[in-house]
């Protein structure tokens, strides 16, 4: 095992670059998540963190562990693969859930359902929930 001082300069710069890139994208994604106006817009912000945000940090980790020679570092690819596969699923489900709730409340801002949405009698409007 080699200490951080023995890491070649090019590797240190590459690790630093990808680390900063990844975490900056995650930060900007979260900032957009707070700033954007409605739910469907906010849905786009976290994908910054899950696409190249995760990508950057995973690449940094691979470079670091491969250069220091502690292990053959393709482990991190699993995390990257896992995040890229799972995020779209959660986002799609959340989008559908939000659409479903907005339609149930007859929110005029969302497109109508292709099959008319059944009216539930006595269903009270819920804006906070």
């Amino acid at each position: 095992m080699m200490s951080n001082a023995d890491v070649p300069l090019w590797a240190a710069i590459a690790v630093a670059f990808f680390l900063i890139l990844g975490s900056a994208l995650a930060l900007i994604g979260s900032y957009g998540f707070v700033r954007l106006q409605n739910f469907y817009e906010r849905l786009h912000a976290p994908t910054l963190g899950t696409s190249w945000g995760t990508g950057g940090i995973v690449i940094a980790s691979i470079i670091y562990f491969t250069v220091t020679g502690q292990r053959l570092a393709i482990h991190e690819l699993l995390v990257g693969l896992f995040i890229t596969l799972t995020t779209p699923i959660t986002l799609m489900l959340l989008a559908r859930a939000a659409l479903h709730r907005d339609r149930a409340e007859r929110n005029p801002d969302v497109p109508v359902a292709p099959i008319p949405f059944p009216l539930v009698e006595g269903e009270s409007e819920k804006n906070e929930g």
Binding site: T87, M92, A95, R96
Partner: peptide, 15 residues
Amino acid sequence: LAVVLTATPGSAWVE
């Protein structure tokens, strides 16, 4: 296609 469109920031597959 759904995974690709949702993973790309800026577009989201809804239904």
